[in-house]
């Protein structure tokens, strides 16, 4: 590639240092070989180090961190699941306990009711027995009282008749009369 003439700005003095006095350095072909060789050397070293050390090491660092974070996240999720499970189990047992306590209360209530029922029935039976007894006694008293009543009435009638008529009636006639008036 032929070197092009100097492209200097106006009013500048060309400082010739190279063989072509003020030529354009990027197009000076005699420098090409040197630059290419050194570029090959330095870039080759860089590529070798990058491939053997830098890329593997940095890749490993980032992969380690990602797996660590991933592991931690998974653990967090597992812990969360366990915590939720525990909450669910707790609430379930709470509900169970509540249900059980209600059942127990219900049982107790039923027992008490049964007992009071039984007692009531016993008392009722007792009372009705006593009632029957009392009725019997009343009937007995009544009959005996009624018996007395006819005797007293016969007495009273006899004395009344005696007083009224001056003659004492026969006891049989008085008895008859009392009996008819009571019955009729």
């Amino acid at each position: 590639m032929a070197s092009t003439p100097a492209t200097t700005t106006t009013g500048t003095v060309a400082h010739g240092g190279e063989a072509h006095g003020g030529a354009f350095p990027p197009f000076q072909s005699e420098t090409f070989a040197s630059q290419l060789i050194w570029l090959a050397i330095t870039f080759g070293v860089l590529y070798y180090l990058a491939a053997k050390i830098i890329v593997p090491r940095l890749g490993a660092i980032l992969a380690d961190r990602a797996s660590r974070i991933g592991g931690d996240l998974n653990e967090a999720a597992a812990m969360k699941a366990k915590a939720e499970e525990a909450v669910a189990a707790y609430e379930k047992s709470l509900a169970e306990a509540r249900a059980k306590s209600q059942a127990i209360a219900q049982e107790a209530r039923d027992a008490v009711n049964a007992k009071s029922d039984a007692r009531r029935k016993a008392v009722e039976a007792d009372l009705s027995a006593k009632l029957v007894d009392a009725e019997r006694k009343i009937v007995a008293m009544k009959t005996s009282a009624m018996g007395n009543v006819s005797a007293i009435a016969a007495d009273a009638a006899a004395s009344i008749v005696a007083k009224l008529t001056g003659a004492a009636p026969s006891p049989a006639a008085v008895e008859d009369a009392v009996k008819t008036s009571i019955e009729g």
Binding site: T12, S34, Q35
Partner: peptide
Amino acid sequence: ASPIEQFEIKPLIKLGTIGKSEI
């Protein structure tokens, strides 16, 4: 100063020649 000067390739340590070019 010339603005082109800064791009000159200056040899710092001469090492020899390969063909026509000086390395």
